[in-house]
Design a protein around this nucleic acid. Sequence first.
DNA 1: TTATTATACATCGTTATACGATGTATGCAA
DNA 2: TTGCATACATCGTATAACGATGTATAATAA
Lengths: 108, 108
Amino acid sequence: MTIGKEMTRGVAEPIILNLLNNKEMYGYEIIKVVNEKTNNAFQWKEGTLYPCLHRLEAAGLIKNEWQIAANGKPRKYYTLTRKGAAELAVKQEEWNLFAKSVNVLLFA
Amino acid sequence: MTIGKEMTRGVAEPIILNLLNNKEMYGYEIIKVVNEKTNNAFQWKEGTLYPCLHRLEAAGLIKNEWQIAANGKPRKYYTLTRKGAAELAVKQEEWNLFAKSVNVLLFA
DNA sequence: TTATTATACATCGTTATACGATGTATGCAA
DNA sequence: TTGCATACATCGTATAACGATGTATAATAA
């Protein structure tokens, strides 16, 4: 059972905001965490995540800071801005309304 | 509180399948019912619905039959095909998995 | 009577996103 | 030394939502 790509639209951004609300993360890590936490129901790839991170940053919702990891690889760590935290709350509420509406219409 | 159009992707088709699983309906009626049942959280328009109905029909999931209503207006009534009923079950399961996954990631 | 609204069908162009493919570079293991 | 995992990135394609627009008729309001 996999999830069609159409259905996943619009949830990537709020999900990223929520993950970064808990702790700073770098892109590659976000991909791994999302796929693991959903048991691969979500199968995010670079082509999905990186443009999304750049959109969020351009919108002022997240900011980045380069750090050198223990393995010597440079990583771009992202954190939420205050504006991003506010947007997260809005998006969570929006999701709840959306999910409720779909449940009404899909299991009438 | 409105729902961004990106988030609504991919749910129109399963919702229509479920509505038609309960009773035959015509396009204009579907728009009204969806908007009413969600208290206008969804605000479907013709430009959303009709192309969607045509896609579903082209895929063999629904079929139509013209009828003349009491008000004299011709209406194109749609019903589910057997294939459409099977697809509905798949899409309902897919939605449940999707919603569960989003809830995990959005409210961690 | 006339104007407007509601009903009922439809298409088209714009916009935005997901994603596969592709690219660069490094470290480590077989 | 070949390949895989890590870690960043961009580009082109496909697709859906939606506003705008169009046609036509019936009912209602001015």
